[in-house]
Computed example of a mutant assay.
Amino acid sequence: MNKFLAKTTVIDWQHPDILQLAQKLASSDINTTTKVCFEWVRDNIYHSSDYKMNPVTCRASEVLQYKTGYCFAKSHLLAALLRANSIHVGFCYQRLSVFDNGAPYSLHGFNAVYLPKYGWYRLDARGNKDGIDAQFNPPQEQLAYGINFPEEIDCRHIFAEPLIQVIQALEENTTWEEMLHNLPDVGRDYLAKF
């Protein structure tokens, strides 16, 4: 389980700004801390393509600094805030239709947190808008997206670190629009093997 608390280059939870915010959002109760951190990231970090915001962020500290990120980057910040509060958290992925009408497809990233009362619980800080209402309400899961097409997949595996394909896409694209045209996709078969 220690790998779900690890500090990495991307999940740089020991950064002073992350530690300060994590302490501010902390509670004596793990569920309350998780909910407050989740809602803070969901509601205070603007989804890059929804708000047409630059730069493309990747490291948790960058997401906090610029207050914007794609779903993946937002999951990096949420993981950092939770790990800074000694809460085990990992990364989850779905493969979804980009325009909700079939091809092209892309990964969508979110988190899973270990809650002693419930076990692993998935939560999606992507950011709500018309048609998207992700909430923290364990044990009921309420993610941003469901599965609608045969080529989509909801991978149930919990990764300790973000997928390398995701990190590469975030680091190689510099504007929200460039990223939108180069969203990472690993293919249905890749996720299905986990």
Rank of each mutant, 00 (worst) to 15 (best):
Y105H: 05
S28F: 13
L78K: 04
R95K: 08
V36N: 10
K24I: 08
V63M: 07
Y105V: 05
V41L: 13
A79K: 12
C92S: 12
I11C: 01
E62A: 12
T32C: 13
S75D: 02
V36A: 00
A103E: 15
V89D: 00
T34D: 10
T68W: 06
W40N: 12
D29Q: 15
S97P: 08
K52Q: 14
V36D: 04
N111P: 01
N85D: 03
C58F: 02
K7S: 10
V56M: 12
L81C: 06
V63D: 03
F72C: 12
G90N: 05
V98H: 01
L77T: 01
S97A: 14
V10R: 05
Q14R: 07
N54Y: 06
A80Q: 10
K24Y: 10
T68A: 07
S27L: 09
D29H: 13
F38T: 01
Q94G: 03
T8C: 12
L107I: 10
T34I: 02
L96W: 01
S61P: 12
S49Y: 15
Y93D: 06
F72K: 06
K7I: 03
S75N: 06
S49L: 04
S28H: 14
Y46L: 14
A103H: 11
L5A: 01
A73C: 12
S27W: 03
S27C: 15
L19H: 08
L96N: 01
F72V: 04
L82K: 08
N31Y: 00
